[in-house]
Design a protein around this nucleic acid. Structure first.
Lengths: 149, 149
DNA sequence: CTCCTTGCAAACCGTTTGCAATCGA
DNA sequence: TCGATTGCAAACGGTTTGCAAGGAG
C-alpha cells in the first residue's frame, strides 16, 4: 500500500534500513486508534512478533521522530510518553485526573496559539504542547474521589 | 512577615505541622527568581541547612501542591519537573531546544485558552499546561547545532 | 505523650546505552 | 562484505517509599 512505500522511501532516502522491528512499529502507530505509550506499542508489536525488544521500539520511535513521522507527547507527571502519527492535525490532549482517560481534540486552538506567538516574542516556536487536565464528563458527574490517587 | 503567617496558618488549618524543612522549602520557592527543579530547591535549602534531605523536599512540594500553594510544570521528555508559586499569574513556558533555557511568559493567552475550552467541550478543565519548544533569540542567531542532543 | 514528619537507603519506572551477535543492502 | 541494527541486560535519573529515629503540638 502506498503509505508503506512512502515509509520505505523515507527510510531509504534518509540512509536508514528497512527492518522488521521498524516496519512493525510503524504499522502499529499508523493504525493506532489513539496515542499509545511505548509499552502499548511494544505489546501490539509483540502480538505479531514476540522477539521484538522494547528497546528497539524506543529506538524506532526516536528515529521516526527525527524523520518527523511521529510525534511524542508528554502528558505530565511520571506518566509514560505517548506517541502518535505526526500531525494528522494539530490538536491537544484532555487528561482526566480521575479515570486517567486521554482524549484528544482537534481544532483551531493550537493554530491560534501559534499565530499569537508569531508576533512580539523573541522566540521561534517550533512545537506547541497543550495539555489540559481536569474531569471528563462521566467522572465529573460521578464523584470527586480520585480513582488513581 | 505576613506571607509567613499565612503559610503557617494554612499548614495549621489543614492539619499539618510547621517544620524546618517545610519552612525552608517554602522560602526558597517563594523567593525564587524562576521555576526551579526539586534538585535546585534542595540545593538552595542545603545552603541554609545541609541536613535537609531531598526526599523531604519532594514531600514538602507534594504537600504544597495539594494545598495549592505551588504548581508543578512538566516541560517534556525526561526533564525534571519545575516548581513555582501557584498562580502569580497564568503563564506558559518557552523552552529552548538548543541551550535548554526555560523562559516564562505572562499574558492573556492561557486565559483565552480557558475561555475557549469553557464552551462546547464535554470536559471540565482545571489545569492548563502550555509548553512551547523552539529556539530562543540568541540560539536562533548562532547555530542550528543542538548543544544538548 | 502521640503520632506526624524526617533522614536514609533502597526500590521504582520509564527510558537509554554498551556490547556482541545478526541482518540488510 | 560490512556497517547499521538488534536483543539483551545493565545503567540511568528523577521520583517515591518503607522504616526506625526524631520532633511538633
Amino acid at each position: 500500500m502506498e503509505a508503506d512505500q512512502d515509509f520505505a522511501a523515507i527510510l531509504r532516502d534518509s540512509g536508514n534500513r528497512m527492518t522488521g522491528p521498524r516496519r512493525q512499529v510503524w504499522e502499529v502507530v499508523r493504525l493506532a486508534d489513539s496515542h499509545l505509550t511505548a509499552e502499548e506499542i511494544a505489546a501490539r508489536v509483540h502480538a505479531k512478533d514476540s522477539t521484538v525488544n522494547l528497546a528497539s521500539v524506543y529506538r524506532a520511535l526516536a528515529l521516526f521522530s527525527d524523520l518527523e513521522l511521529v510525534r511524542e507527547s508528554n502528558l505530565g507527571d511520571g506518566d509514560a510518553a505517548r506517541w502518535e502519527l505526526a500531525h494528522p492535525d494539530e490538536h491537544f490532549h484532555l487528561v482526566c485526573r480521575r479515570c486517567g482517560a486521554v482524549d484528544h481534540h482537534v481544532g483551531r486552538l493550537v493554530e491560534e496559539i501559534r499565530e499569537h506567538l508569531s508576533g512580539g516574542h523573541d522566540f521561534y516556536a517550533e512545537n506547541i504542547e497543550l495539555v489540559v487536565t481536569g474531569l471528563c464528563q462521566r467522572c465529573a458527574t460521578i464523584s470527586e474521589q480520585p480513582i488513581r490517587p
